[in-house]
Design a protein around this nucleic acid. Structure first.
Lengths: 233, 233
DNA sequence: ACCTGAACACCGTTCAAGT
DNA sequence: ACCTGAACACCGTTCAAGT
């Protein structure tokens, strides 16, 4: 895990503090445990009470390190942003943006509960700001104008976020449970939705299919379009 | 409002029922009121108790028309899908898909609370299925192969959903509150984030700027790429 | 300083009763 | 059949107290 050490508002002590049982509570430990609960049991299972119990502490103790539940949600979204690889401004812009997009996708797939939170959190955290600053710097250093950078930034992010939404909604994870596939097939066999049936039977349910390939296609389309708009081609 | 009359599982009575005060409860009335509460006060304000009160009824009465809170969330997401214009298969595919994408964007902007729900709802409703069937049919009738239709479908939807996520997270709605803009400017004036500052000052905060233009740019890029991949160009 | 017990105003939902 | 009162097992959070 890579969630930006010494990045946010200073919590004071720089001592590593042994990670044994009943280590002293810190903002970092609270957020890390919150992420773990959301990963393992879903966002609905993350309550002040369940979080406190997982930390072997009473609910009220949490309030000495975070302002409340909303601050925890803001915090874990920023932890997720901190796990994404940043593009290197000044390098091969296309390779850097592709690496960043693939990293963001895999991080959001690891933390699908974060996708709906990307929207609802009004105040962007420091890792979020650093992330987007790096994307903008990469685009500007590549020679894109300010208006074109705005276009590229919006399109790239819409694609990455939107793909994450789709993946989080995927009914089966790469052909795992056959009974789920059967239930879906049964819904299609009614005869309505012939095109969805066609797509599912002839393509998506075929052995070699991987939804991740759609990500590479879309990313290629976008980067090609951006490359074509660069003046010094 | 256009949320697919006579579409879902039959609720029986086809009589219009006068919309006067204390009309009999139906699944449609429950869902319509739920959408109105989410629109006006946000998703958090939608509780079984607040919904019952808005319908001039006790909370327990709702359970005779919907299975529970989750069923209401599934239901209102499908109401939102039902408000989106469908593309007409067999027509000008590019114009039809553009019209559908713009309609989906404006519907999701009208109901920003629906964006995070698009993911978390596992079971797609009838309006959702009809919507995606129409998109697939439009692509197939335009001459796209099945694998290419899968690419196009994933890319278009990722863009529409992702753009909705971005718009729902926009801090100010088209230059409304100047004090919000100042607070953001203050955060940038620290000197970190020079590229975000540049983009904000030189572009986004300029008089003529409209974030909606980014939608048209991205949509154009995607539709151009799809058109270029059609065999019978 | 950090932690906590008890309490408050909420949730969604079940159950048994009303008409 | 449709509606409801009372109750249950939860929430997030405040307040006053402990050490």
């Amino acid at each position: 895990m890579v969630h930006g050490t010494s990045a946010g508002a200073g919590t004071g002590g720089a001592t590593p503090a042994p990670a044994g049982p009943r280590a002293p509570l810190t903002r970092e430990r609270v957020l890390a445990r919150a992420v773990a609960i959301a990963d393992e049991q879903g966002l609905a299972a993350l309550t002040m009470r369940s979080l406190a119990q997982a930390l072997d502490v009473k609910p009220m103790s949490l309030y000495h390190h975070v302002a409340g539940k909303d601050a925890i949600l803001d915090g874990i979204v920023d932890v997720v942003f901190g796990e994404m690889e940043l593009p290197e401004p000044g390098g091969d812009w296309r390779a850097e943006l592709a690496r960043r997009a693939r990293s963001a996708r895999s991080v959001l797939r690891r933390h699908p509960w974060a996708v709906p939170l990307l929207e609802s959190r009004a105040v962007p955290g420091p890792a979020n700001l650093r992330h987007h600053e790096a994307v903008l710097a990469t685009l500007r250093d590549a020679g894109f104008s300010v208006p074109m950078t705005a276009h590229a930034y919006a399109l790239l992010d819409a694609f990455v976020y939107g793909f994450a939404v789709q993946e989080a909604a995927l009914p089966f994870d790469a052909g795992s449970a056959p009974q789920v596939a059967e239930a879906i097939a049964a819904q299609f066999s009614s005869g309505d939705f012939p095109r969805m049936t066609e797509l599912a039977v002839e393509h998506v349910m075929q052995p070699g299919y991987d939804f991740g390939d759609e990500f590479e296609y879309g990313l290629g389309v976008i980067l090609d379009a951006l490359a074509a708009s660069l003046p010094g081609d």
